[in-house]
Computed example of a mutant assay.
Amino acid sequence: MQTLRNIYWLGTKELRSFFRDWVLLGLVIYSFSLAIVAQAQSNAQELHNASLAVVDEDHSELSGRLARSFLPPYFLPAVPVAQGDVDRLMNTGAYTFILDIPPNFQRDLLAGRRPVLQFNVDATAMMQAGIGSGYAQQILANEIAKFLTRQDEPSPVLVGQAVRIAFNPNLVTAWFSSVMGIIGSITMLSIILAGAAVVREREHGTVEHLLVMPVTPFEIAMAKIWANSLVIAGAVWLSLIFVVQRLLAIPIEGSIPLFMCGVAIYLFFATSIGIFLATIARTMPQLGLLYLLVAVPLNLLSGGNTPLESMPPFLRTIMQASPSTHFVAIAQAILYRGAGFDIVWPRFVAMAAIGAIFLALALWRFRSVSTQSG
């Protein structure tokens, strides 16, 4: 009981110290509010208001219909341009797409001569270029088919394809990027806050004061872990409720309390990494450099940015030993697909086991450094 009391009171000291540090407090508020909004709204990967120009060298009924077939919100209204300006407009990036309809296109099509349309694409906007090219091909094919058959709808195909998009029916990027932004902020801040708490004690010379008190290095480390984890867990919960659900109007299918249980387990791992790095670093700049070596690979290879299936087999196997990989899978299963505990509990166990190993390493290292300092 004395150990628990020491951990509790040392943790309250950490909380008071944190709320007096306006820089760290501002970083937490920004990371779970404005940063989430910016990532959700500026990282859109769907086609929206793409600029389009049309070179109409045919001036026929069909060419006019083709130019008018590109509609908002995917494309802006087509702007007529001259054929001699195509290269200049593409080089200057004035338009993402330029459709060139050759002379006598309608006459050759009706005569069965298989004329060719030229669709120029600025692929520097890679995501929009790829999606827009596919949309344009479908739009032009449907419009030409309707013109040839003189029907409002093209002739039905022999085999129909029914596509059902689950969990994100409109393919809105913000639904994915907002939650992934929260996960990235959890990793970043848990390492920085826990590490900064230890480095700050060392820089201010207060770690020696703690060591002469009737407390153990284990109690000091655990106090920093629970205090910083509590701050981040509270920020995550507020961000999900007020930023994701209310401000961005993004639906959450699953149980937020179940997800917060996963957050609590993951925070033991991430804060332990922060303490471990702080026992190596002597100053905050050194801690920042070590953070880049650890946190960036954890985020990039966790499956939040690139699916694990797209990675080399040996890398997929290695990343199974990372709690960040399991945490991303848990977050996607619970928040996107509404999974229950019966589905995610194996990953809970794996994340807790791996986190316990890193926690033991952090505590061992912290004891060693504290003994040397004493």
Results as ranks from 00 to 15, higher is better:
Glu201Val: 06
Ile220Gly: 06
Glu57Pro: 01
Val369Lys: 11
Asp108Thr: 10
Ala129Asn: 07
Ala78Glu: 09
Ser370Ala: 07
Arg150Ser: 14
Val328Arg: 02
Ala123Leu: 00
Pro313Phe: 02
Gly160Ser: 15
Ile256Asp: 06
Leu211Gln: 13
Pro312Tyr: 08
Thr371Glu: 05
Pro323Glu: 12
Leu210Gln: 10
Thr3Asp: 09
Glu208Lys: 05
Pro307Met: 03
Thr306Ile: 11
Asn104Gly: 11
Met1Gly: 09
Thr124Phe: 00
Ala223Gln: 04
Leu287Glu: 09
Thr371His: 06
Asp100His: 09
Ser229Asp: 00
Ile182Ala: 10
Ser310Thr: 11
Gly130Lys: 05
Ala166Ser: 06
Leu247Tyr: 11
Ile29Glu: 01
Ile225Phe: 08
Ile318Pro: 10
Gln39Arg: 12
Ala166Gly: 02
Leu248Trp: 02
Met311Trp: 12
Pro251Phe: 06
Val157Cys: 03
Thr325Trp: 04
Pro323Ser: 04
Phe314Asp: 13
Lys13Ala: 08
Thr371Ile: 14
Asn6Asp: 04
Arg150Ala: 02
Val179Asn: 02
Ile182Asp: 08
Gly112Ala: 15
Ser324Lys: 00
Leu148Thr: 05
Asp87Glu: 12
Tyr95Gly: 09
Gly11Pro: 04
Gln106Ser: 12
Cys261Ser: 11
Ala362Ile: 02
Ile7Arg: 02
Arg316Tyr: 10
Gly374Glu: 15
Ala264Val: 08
Phe167Arg: 08
Phe242Met: 06
Cys261Leu: 15
Thr283Asp: 10
Phe218Ile: 15
Gln137Trp: 03
Leu62Phe: 07
Val198Ser: 03
Asn43Asp: 12
Gly64Pro: 07
Leu290Asn: 00
Glu57Ser: 12
Ala44Leu: 14
Leu34Val: 15
Ala123Asn: 13
Leu110Trp: 05
Asn142Glu: 15
Ile165Gly: 01
Ile191Lys: 02
Tyr95Lys: 07
Leu158Val: 14
Phe18Lys: 00
Ala339Pro: 00
Lys13Tyr: 13
Ala35Asp: 15
Val243Pro: 04
Pro156Asn: 04
Asp58Met: 11
Leu24Ser: 04
Leu24Asp: 00
Arg20Thr: 07
Ala67Pro: 14
Ile191Trp: 05
Tyr266Ile: 10
Phe358Ile: 09
Arg246Ile: 07
Tyr74Gln: 09
Gly26Pro: 05
Pro312Leu: 13
